Measured scan of single mutants.
Amino acid sequence: NKFNKEQQWATYEILNLPNLNEEQRKAFIDSLKDDPSQSANLLAEAKKLNDAQA
């Protein structure tokens, strides 16, 4: 299913963002699990935070 693929991709991407700390990473991944339909939005937020902390 589409959300499952998006969720897996977003999880992979978030795990590989270098500037997030473990707590932030875990929070994003927990949110992905809670609502896979928000995968794209959550990934965008994670990338923004990652860039802000660069």
Rank of each mutant, 00 (worst) to 15 (best):
S37N: 10
A44R: 06
N1E: 14
S39D: 02
K47Y: 10
F3M: 15
K33L: 10
E22M: 07
L20T: 00
A44H: 09
D51A: 12
S39I: 15
Q7V: 15
P18T: 05
Q38Y: 05
R25E: 01
Q53F: 10
K33G: 14
N19D: 09
D30T: 06
E22Y: 11
L43D: 00
I14W: 01
L42D: 01
N21D: 09
K47R: 11
A44K: 06
K5F: 03
K48N: 07
D35K: 10
F28S: 01
A54T: 13
E6R: 01
N4E: 15
E45G: 05
N1Q: 04
D30A: 11
F3R: 15
I14V: 06
A44G: 09
I14L: 04
E6T: 03
D35V: 09
L42R: 08
D30P: 00
A46N: 00
I29N: 02
Q24G: 01
K26V: 08
N50P: 01
K48S: 11
K33V: 15
L32W: 03
Q38F: 04
D34Q: 14
A27M: 10
Q53N: 07
L42Y: 11
E22R: 09
K5I: 03
N21Y: 10
S37W: 05
A52M: 10
W9E: 15
A46G: 02
L32A: 04
K2Y: 10
Q24S: 04
N1T: 04
R25M: 04
L32V: 09
D30S: 08
A27K: 06
N41E: 09
Q7R: 02
S37R: 07
E23I: 14
Q8K: 09
Q8N: 03
D51Q: 10
L20Q: 00
D34N: 13
A46W: 01
T11D: 03
E13W: 12
E23W: 09
N50W: 01
Y12V: 06
R25Y: 04
L17P: 00
L43H: 04
T11L: 15
N21A: 12
W9I: 14
R25T: 07
L43P: 00
N1F: 00
E13V: 08
K48E: 09
Q38M: 13
T11S: 13
A10W: 03
R25F: 03
A46S: 02
E45Y: 06
S39N: 05
D51F: 13
A40S: 08
N41F: 09
A52Y: 09
K47F: 06
N16S: 07
N19L: 06
P36I: 06
K2N: 15
Y12I: 08
N4V: 10
D30H: 07
P36H: 04
P18N: 05
I29H: 03
K2L: 04
A52G: 07
K26Q: 12
N41H: 12
D51W: 11
K48V: 11
E45K: 10
Q24I: 05
Q24Y: 02
A46K: 00
N4G: 15
L49G: 01
D51L: 13
Q7W: 14
K48Q: 12
A10T: 06
A10N: 03
L42F: 13
D30Y: 04
L43M: 06
F28K: 01
N16D: 04
I14A: 01
Q24M: 05
S37M: 08
L32E: 00
A40Y: 10
R25K: 14
K47Q: 06
Q38L: 08
F3V: 15
Q8G: 03
A27H: 11
N41R: 14
I29E: 03
E45N: 11
I29P: 00
R25A: 06
I29A: 04
E13N: 06
I29F: 05
Y12R: 05
R25H: 03
E13Y: 05
D34P: 02
T11F: 15
D34G: 08
A46T: 00
A46V: 02
F3S: 15
L17S: 01
W9P: 01
Y12W: 13
A40K: 09
N4F: 14
E22I: 08
K5H: 06
S31P: 02
L15Q: 13
N50K: 01
Q38W: 05
K48D: 07
E22W: 13
N4Q: 15
N19H: 12
L15A: 08
K2F: 07
L20G: 00
A54G: 12
A40Q: 10
K33M: 14
K5E: 15
D30F: 06
K5P: 15
N1G: 09
K33S: 14
F3Y: 07
E13G: 05
A27Q: 12
L17Q: 03
A10G: 02
A54N: 10
E13L: 14
S31F: 10
W9Y: 14
F28E: 00
E45P: 00
L15T: 14
N1A: 02
S31K: 13
K2P: 13
K5R: 02
E45D: 06
Q38H: 06
N21H: 11
K5W: 04
W9H: 14
I14F: 03
Q8S: 04
K26N: 11
F3D: 15
D34W: 12
A44L: 12
Q24T: 05
A54W: 07
S31R: 13
Q8E: 13
N4A: 12
Q8L: 09
N16T: 07
E13D: 04
A10K: 02
L20R: 00
I29G: 02
A44N: 10
N41S: 12
N19A: 09
F28P: 00
S37E: 07
D34H: 09
I14H: 01
